[in-house]
Write a protein that binds this DNA or RNA. Structure first.
Length: 476
RNA sequence: GGUCCCUUCGUCUAGUGGUCUAGGACACUUGGUUCUCAUCCAAGAGAUCGCGGGUUCGAAUCCCGCAGGGAUCACCA
């Protein structure tokens, strides 16, 4: 059995969104599971479409998710270089081989002429096949014309590790371009040469390549190459609509999610679960479990929709599993600006209360702002409260004053505050819905906060009482 | 238009002839956890398994047809 070597071979023409990263993840999982290698290769043969910064973005996305590669453009390896534009000699060599074997020829037509053939086919409601116009005596290939593959149309039946048994007739085989007139190879040619030279055992790619696979099969044969295991991934679709997920639909890329404070492991778990499961009811998998349990034949054949709500849930679940110290470390950089003046101990206590409410880190300021700075008095919190709006100002004042008196005596430990609040409930004859809501609003000025005693204990005596005063003063 | 692929709750999915009057998770609804938000717990609603034929004692599961969706038919990948 050949050693397992998988690859992720993006073109640096855009940013990597969650759909694209899944292909990389699955390839990585297969390599790690089998103790093989995972390779990164840039397919930059279309110089016109290349986007500045895309390479760095790709590398960083993989690194953030922990999808480490063993060989790649920046780290080299036994089959370097891992950038197609630096491998032009290889393609020339294989191209010459095909020309000599009579399996490739120069395309003598102008682009306009080819376009004419295409339009004629369209008018006749036929699929366009270049080989129907194959020149009888093509000129010698001097590199200035495109080099085309001379295909040998035939039916194919092959196995795809995800899609199962597939088959097509000879009508889909055509003379595609191997080398463009600018000297660069097409993807169709380059990836086959590279995969062979780099000893790739499994080729994983998106569904958009399914239709051209028979042509690749034809080329493998012409080149006398053993073909790798083929695995075709279904698309990940946008949340609404049936189109494949794309940046245009507002799809975020991986780094956007990292920036919003999603945990890499949750992201990996979520992306893996889009189209894969282990056949049980398990939902949460550590990356290690994913490596152990992943299997291509359990990959779904139909497209999956990207449901961000589910990602949020999953990320929240991961956050809750984290030890507080670990969480604290990861959350650095997400605190509100007002938190800067506070020490680790205080922020740690705040984080302890926020942990079970956090779905991703960038929610932290919204959830904790009032622990660090006095929010302006918001009278609507009282007037808009279903129960509190029934009370008149005098009653509210009285309740707050009694709370103030009692809390002034407190040592502000959670048990002591709890006891005093309970006593207050009895003394005032009020329900928690009224008394606690009122104190909570007065001391936070926030629509939501953690449990009252916990919140007060973290805020501390001075600040809690000061806010009670401020609320009292604003009553009038 | 040709070719190929796909089709189970709104969403991600389990399911490979009988244990499926279809299971889990997200989302949603309701109740409980002394206030809010969240967590957690419990309960509920939600899928005639795309449709129509067949095979079989028996089909979500096998076969055929149809429909819908998607991909592809570039000197893009």
């Amino acid at each position: 059995m050949k050693p397992v070597r998988t690859r992720f071979a993006p073109s640096p023409t855009g940013f990597l969104h969650v759909g694209g990263i899944r292909t990389a993840l699955f390839a990585w999982l297969v390599a790690r599971q089998q103790g093989g290698q995972f390779i990164l290769r840039f397919e930059d043969t279309d110089k016109k479409r290349e986007v500045a910064g895309a390479r760095e973005h790709l590398v960083q996305s993989l690194r953030e998710l922990g999808l480490t590669y063993d060989e790649g453009p920046d780290i080299g390896g036994p089959y370097a270089p891992y950038v197609q534009s630096e491998r032009l000699d290889s393609y020339q060599k294989y191209a010459r081989q095909l020309v000599e074997a009579g399996r490739a020829y120069a395309d003598p037509y102008t682009p306009e002429e080819v376009q004419g053939f295409r339009e004629a086919a369209q008018r006749a409601k036929q699929p366009f096949l270049y080989r129907n116009s194959r020149p009888e005596n093509p000129p010698e290939w001097d590199g200035s014309q495109p080099l085309r593959f001379k295909s040998e149309p035939k039916a194919y039946a092959w196995h795809d590790a995800v899609m199962g048994d597939l088959s097509t007739g000879p009508e889909v085989i055509d003379d595609f371009i191997l080398i463009k007139s600018d000297g660069y190879p097409t993807y169709n040619f380059a990836h086959i040469v590279d995969d062979a030279e780099m000893q790739i055992s499994h080729v994983m790619r998106g569904q958009e390549f399914l239709a051209s696979t028979p042509n690749y099969l034809n080329l493998y044969e012409a080149l006398g190459l053993e073909r790798p295991v083929l695995a075709t991934m279904p698309h990940i679709m946008a949340e609404n609509g049936n189109k494949k997920l794309s940046k245009r639909d507002g799809a975020k890329d991986v780094l956007d999610y990292i920036r919003d404070g999603y945990l890499p492991e949750a992201l990996v778990n979520f992306i893996a679960s889009l189209g894969w499961n282990d056949g049980t009811e398990q939902e949460l998998f550590t990356t290690q479990e994913l490596i152990e349990k992943f299997s291509l034949d359990h990959v779904q054949r139909s497209g999956a929709r990207f449901d961000e709500k589910r990602l949020e849930w999953m990320n929240g679940a991961y956050i809750r599993q984290l030890a507080l110290d670990t969480l604290y470390d990861k959350v650095r950089g997400f605190w509100p600006a007002s938190a800067e003046a506070y020490d680790d101990d205080y922020k740690l206590r705040v984080l302890g209360l926020a942990q079970e409410r956090l779905k991703f880190f960038s929610e932290l300021p919204m959830l904790t702002e009032f622990f660090f700075t006095d929010l302006p008095i918001n009278s609507e919190l009282i007037s808009g409260n279903k129960q509190l709006k029934k009370l008149d100002t005098a009653e509210i004042r009285s309740l707050l004053e009694q709370a103030q008196v009692s809390l002034t005596e407190s040592d502000f430990s959670v048990p002591d505050i709890t006891e005093r609040l309970n006593l207050l409930l009895e003394a005032t004859g009020q329900k928690p819905g009224i008394l606690f809501s009122l104190i909570r609003i007065a001391t936070t000025q926030a629509p939501a906060s953690p449990a009252l005693a916990d919140t007060l204990a973290v805020l501390g005596k001075d600040r809690s009482l000061a806010r009670l005063n401020a609320q009292l003063a604003a009553l009038s």
